[in-house]
Amino acid sequence: MKGLEAISHYHGVSLAVLGVTVVFIALVVLAVIISRLHVVLGVWENPKAWLDRVRLWVFPEKPEKPEPPGPYFDDIHESARQLNLLIHAIGEPFSLPALIEKAEKIGISHAHSVVSHLIVSHLIVPDQKGYFYWNQKECDRLLGKGRGKKGVETING
């Protein structure tokens, strides 16, 4: 037996309608009771969690000053000079991973942390499109003032 005959024989339509109706009625009744539950229980809600949040709002914690990542060099000048030459060779804006790869190839040791150092020192700056360029002004300021003078970063390794 197949088709509409089978459906009719097993009272399929009435069973399906009954099923959908019962599911809906049961869940509607549940929904109505549960929606009123919090109103009835309202006065007994736990205030402890709310007090914790208020405390955090009244006494916010100060953000920590970010630590610069540890450089490996005594002096930024040598790093800046080497990378400056490389960047002039590859052109701007440049790809940071490509710069690191080339730096490693030409024998600049710790190329990754050198680049990190230059980014933190604002000698390499992003163009907000995924590429970077050399900050010549900052470079001139650093190289022009030389080692040990005021305003030049000297970092111990």
Binding site: P66, L96, P97, A98, V115, S116, V120, K129, G130
Partner: peptide, 18 residues
């Protein structure tokens, strides 16, 4: 630490804030 997020096409950004 300082980390570089980079794509196969050469674009990148860096992150170093805790």
């Amino acid at each position: 630490g300082h980390f570089m997020i980079h794509y196969n096409d050469g674009r990148a950004i860096t992150l170093n804030q805790k």
